[in-house]
């Protein structure tokens, strides 16, 4: 009897030594897929939906322009009219051209012909401003643009 009891109480502990390894594996996965957001948004940026989309693959040749109504904390100072945001500052329409050229100048020369301007525009913004931006882009000769959207039912945009 006593022999049996002894064997049941003397169980080996479960080794947790491999737990850090598993967690580290997960950690490295997330570290590699993480894209740190480099721009803090000051404008509302609920992108419209679309179905016929193409992926913007290579990040090094994409320049983003954000457009939308100012965030709630800026509404008092700026109103609700749509604004342009370049990097993390509000900008005027006349700043768009110089900003794009400045970014282009920083890029390696072989990438410059492939640069795409990603227009990240809130779905509530007005087309007038967008057409003005497009006109600016035409005058400086960056003609490849991308209306960046979410993938989803496009008729949801109308609500």
């Amino acid at each position: 009897m006593s022999k049996f009891r002894k064997s049941t109480t003397d169980r080996p502990e479960v080794s947790t030594a491999s737990l850090p390894d598993i967690v580290f594996m997960l950690l490295f996965f997330f570290m590699t897929v993480t894209v740190m957001k480099d721009d803090t948004l000051k404008v509302k940026n609920e992108l419209p939906n679309a179905t016929e989309v193409k992926r913007l693959e290579k990040k090094d040749r994409v320049i983003s322009i954000y457009v939308g109504g100012p965030n709630d904390q800026f509404v008092g100072a700026l109103g609700t009219e749509s604004r342009i945001q370049l990097d993390d500052k509000f900008a005027n329409l006349s700043d768009v051209g110089p900003y794009i050229l400045e970014r282009l100048a920083k890029m390696p020369e072989e990438l410059r012909p492939f640069v795409t301007i990603s227009l990240k525009v809130d779905r509530k913004a007005n087309m007038g401003l967008i057409n003005d931006i497009k006109q600016e882009l035409r005058t400086i000769g960056t003609l490849k643009i991308n209306y960046t959207t979410y993938e989803g039912d496009t008729f949801m945009n109308l609500k």
Binding site: A50, E52, V53, K54, R55, L56, V62, T116, S118, L119, K134, L137, R138, G141, L143, K144, I145, N146, Y147, T148, T149, E151
Partner: peptide
């Protein structure tokens, strides 16, 4: 990121 590609006229 995905979206609709367009080319502007010169």
């Amino acid at each position: 990121e995905a979206g609709i590609d367009r080319k502007l006229p010169p």
